[in-house]
């Protein structure tokens, strides 16, 4: 147990030492959101209508940028090989690493979300729904994303390929999340959408660590 705790602590320490890598995806998110009022329309009604979708799209795009960091350094300096050889349960190791990654890259996003809600003129009900979908949905992004990161970590130019692999897989999440916020805007119940996202999250939590471990082994060959 203390071994896994050690990995967690190490990952957190490294993440906070490389502050630029933490902040850059967030700045990217903020800038993407800024583009929409400029590009589409600054009228409050329009912004309110497209707001949930814009925030979620920006979150997915910025998560793709942050995702690469997950295993890249470990792969390059050889610590990934050490994890595989060490005899620790690789699925557990990958789950711990994903958890650490989620904490450092998505919790700041949640903290930033009130600002985004103000920018896009979301109502309080919509904002609550948005935070709930982000809470349930972003761990899903991390878990599924980590599988693809594990597969592409050994490739020289994995960045664009990672986006190509992940964007189609994230589409159902985007649909349900935005539909939940839209329902909230109309004062309708949105438990169903949240339940579906939660179901996907539970399924991913159960299966993804094994898939991540397998894909890391494939990459390490």
């Amino acid at each position: 147990m203390s071994l896994y705790h050690g990995i967690f602590k190490r990952d957190m320490q490294i993440a906070f030492k490389q502050k630029a890598e933490l902040v850059q995806p967030l700045m990217f998110l903020l800038m993407v959101v800024t583009l929409f009022p400029l590009g589409v329309s600054p009228s409050p009604d329009t912004l309110q209508r497209i707001g949930p979708g814009v925030i979620w799209i920006a979150a997915i795009l910025s998560s793709l940028m942050a995702m690469e960091r997950l295993f890249r350094d470990d792969f390059q300096d050889g610590s990934l090989e050490q994890y595989i050889l060490s005899g620790m349960a690789l699925p557990a190791v990958s789950a711990v690493k994903v958890a650490a990654h989620w904490l450092v890259s998505f919790v700041p996003l949640l903290l930033l979300s009130p600002l985004l809600a103000v920018f896009l003129n979301l109502t309080v009900d919509m904002y609550i729904a948005l935070v709930l979908t982000l809470l349930l949905g972003t761990p899903l992004l991390s878990l599924i994303g980590a599988i693809a990161v594990g597969l592409t970590v050994g490739l020289q130019k994995g960045g664009v390929l990672l986006a190509l692999l992940l964007i189609p897989v994230f589409i159902p999440l985007l649909i349900f999340a935005t539909s939940a916020v839209d329902s909230a805007a109309l004062q309708l119940p949105y438990h169903a959408q949240l339940a579906i996202i939660a179901a996907m999250l539970l399924l991913a939590t159960a299966l993804a660590p094994f898939a991540i471990a397998y894909s890391l082994k494939v990459s390490q060959n």
């Binding site: 599988i147 897989v169 060959n221």
Partner: peptide, 20 residues
Amino acid sequence: GAFEDKQQAGKAAGVMALVG
């Protein structure tokens, strides 16, 4: 197509097919 080693490529593409 991204992998040089086609054995590895098959395994990787297989994981992605299962995810999809």
